[in-house]
Design a protein around this nucleic acid. Structure first.
Lengths: 214, 214
DNA sequence: TAAAAAATGCGTTTTTATACGTATAATCAT
DNA sequence: ATGATTATACGTATAAAAACGCATTTTTTA
């Protein structure tokens, strides 16, 4: 845990300078490289990959999300921490998808940055409390919707479930031991109630309101 | 932040006793109530709701998830922290959906429990690191799948998106200014690639692999 | 630059879904 | 106990999707 090579990617020179100064006083930092956007960054890591990258999200030329994806194509085990402005919390999803191992807000305290670097270097994740709250909040959201739209009868829910499983009306009829025409009718009624105009919209509805889980 | 009324819901007497003893020495705890299952708990909160509840998940008669839902119907602002055994991490989703504000593992250190109680009492969330890792991992998982299945071309993704929006092939053709037959073909190819046998399965696939968001 | 992949288009046939209608038995709630 | 909802079932017709096959142009990539 000593002598880490850190890479800062951010389009604001002053921010880079400040962070560089702070990091240069950290015991575990050996060297600090910089780039002013994603493209610059990609062009500069081919020779030797850094241990941990601090990556801004919004940048000209190539943003943090794209840069993260590309960098990980070259070095799949690269440790990248997203560094975002207040208000960019909702990019956490994109950054996680892109492969970032951590997510910090720019108004974090410096010891958080140090903690994040150490955690991520050790293979752990680090997400600042604000981001975690955001994540928890988003996990919650779906559930609230579900209750408001619980207008389908048990049988309709059952039919809807089988529709989502990819069964045709005939197959559903066989499964439930009822006539295909009955299933036809159920399906028609479900379409009505869910205000969907076809199977596609219906399945989206079913998943959104948790009649079916992925 | 002094004089909190804590409620412990757990079917293991010894566990309750131990936790009760530890909490009784905490400066911010005023009183501690207990229940051995969810039903007992519900019956005992009507008179006066506790400030913070520590709720086991697996219990006889009525489990923690059901108990949490019911309790929050009565007292919507009740602060409930899930307390789970190692291996029950994946209930976090159900507990969050039920309305829990925090999630602790039973092998946490006691200061974590204290921290969780304080955070949750103040309206924040508290999730133990193990749970957070689990959450992050699950957020990530979809994406890993997505990459392995990223076999759809740009145009196919576009068509798939419009299918999920509920458009018919003719409507999609009009939207994209191409022939309906072309859309037919795209749809056919997408079905093949996604190994779906009809629209329903296709839409499930699209959402699962994030070609379409709810 | 040559080969591969993707996007475009059309024809035909079968299956499935959608949209109307009607009607009866069972179950549920006031 | 009665009225409302739900589950059941059938008829008919049109629209859409799915399953084949084939072919040309454009774009991407090796």
């Amino acid at each position: 845990m000593t002598g880490l090579n850190i890479f800062i990617v951010d389009d604001h020179t002053l921010f880079r300078e400040g962070l560089k100064f702070l990091l240069s006083n950290s015991s575990f930092v050996l060297s600090i490289s910089e780039a002013k956007n994603g493209k610059d960054f990609i062009n500069n890591i081919h020779s030797s990959p850094p241990d941990v990258v601090l990556m801004d999200i919004e940048m000209p030329v190539k943003n943090g999300i794209e840069a993260t994806k590309e960098a990980l194509k070259i070095f799949p085990s690269l440790k990248i921490i997203a560094l975002s402005m207040y208000g960019e919390e909702n990019f956490y999803r994109d950054m996680i998808d892109a492969g970032a191992k951590g997510f910090l807000l720019k108004n974090s305290r410096f010891d958080e940055v140090e903690q994040a670097i150490m955690d991520v270097y050790e293979g752990k994740n680090y997400f600042s409390p604000e981001i975690l709250n955001q994540i928890i909040k988003n996990l919650n959201r779906n559930n609230n919707l579900a209750k408001k739209n619980a207008v389908l009868s048990k049988r309709e829910q059952e039919v809807l479930f089988h529709i989502c499983k990819g069964l045709s009306n005939q197959e559903i009829a066989d499964t439930l031991c009822i006539s295909k025409r009955t299933v036809d009718k159920h399906r028609e009624n479900i379409l009505l109630k869910s205000q969907s105009k076809n199977t596609a919209e219906l399945v989206v509805y079913a998943i959104k309101y948790q009649y079916f889980e992925l």
